[in-house]
């Protein structure tokens, strides 16, 4: 019975780590372009990281000078 005190939290912890990792990868745009990612891995210039984070917050403050 005492084993459960370790085993259950460990199994849950591993699951949570997986879940958090998935959420992070989702949020950072790694699923935004699956076809492109498959090609980018072959590029030499090393620019294969997604750059979605900056897309997240459109800045509306300087709208007035749009026109």
């Amino acid at each position: 019975m005492i084993d459960f005190l370790y085993l259950v939290p460990i199994s849950l912890g591993l699951g949570v780590i997986g879940l958090v990792a998935f959420m992070w990868s989702l949020r950072s745009g790694q699923y935004a372009d699956l076809d492109g990612a498959a090609e980018r891995i072959l590029f030499d210039d090393g620019r294969d990281a997604p750059d979605a984070p900056a897309r997240a917050e459109p800045d509306l403050t300087d709208r007035p000078d749009d026109r």
Binding site: A54, R55, E57, P58, D59, L60, D62, R63, D66, R67
Partner: peptide, 10 residues
């Protein structure tokens, strides 16, 4: 292009 674009800060 300007009409179809948006500002993204900085």
């Amino acid at each position: 292009l300007l009409l179809a674009s948006r500002t993204v800060g900085s």
